[in-house]
Amino acid sequence: MSNDPTHQFLVNKIVPIEIGGIDFSFTNSSLFMVATVAVAAGFLYFTTSQRGLVPSRLQSVSEMSYEFVASMLRDGAGSHGMKFFPFVFSLFMFVLTANLIGMVPYFFTVTSQIIVTFTLALLVIGTVIFYGFFKHGFGFLKLFVPSGVPGALLPLVVSIEVISFLSRPISLSIRLFANMLAGHITLKVFAGFVASLGAFGAIGVAGSILPLLMTVALTGLEFLVSFLQAYVFAVLTCMYLNDALHPGGH
């Protein structure tokens, strides 16, 4: 069981809760969501408690993440997009922290659960649709009608635009989920090679050097992927919010 690369994605109940026949148990997934919130919020809160005019190193990290997301949002969605800053910042920090916590051995990776990434993606698209209609009414539908397209091509272009819009939550969620899942499985498989080859004596130990090196390299890569996927998730969120803010601005 411990060699099963998918074992790490198992959701185990810690406190069983059932409401109206639906299972709402507090699971290891819930535990690590709580841990993600605690770590991210705690870090951001306590590193900035000094409010230093000249920041300490950790305060710089918090300020850098703030300015990083702020510039990302400003570039992606313009200065009007800054009203979504708390949302994008929360998304980025949550996904990043969840990804990084998942890198600790034996820890659960919240973002390797498709339902988690899909819920976050639906939240993003829901915000886009809600705000788009709230702000522009039916003018939001101009999003699907790019300007300067000849009339004959319009039905085709509009249907492509609609399909691409509908596929956004799927691509957004699967991108993050699949990256985290595949990375963790790969790590587990290569690490498993090290252990199982080591059982075959001296030759096995010698042969396990290569997968060990691979594991080390992949660990580095996975840290990069953890950051990159959080960044990609946030950048795409900014771009989608831009559509809600400026539907005609293709």
Partner: peptide, 13 residues
């Protein structure tokens, strides 16, 4: 696990 994860994600997020 979906219902539980969505609920707890909603609470924590």
């Amino acid at each position: 696990t979906f219902a539980s994860q969505v609920l707890w994600l909603a609470i924590t997020f």
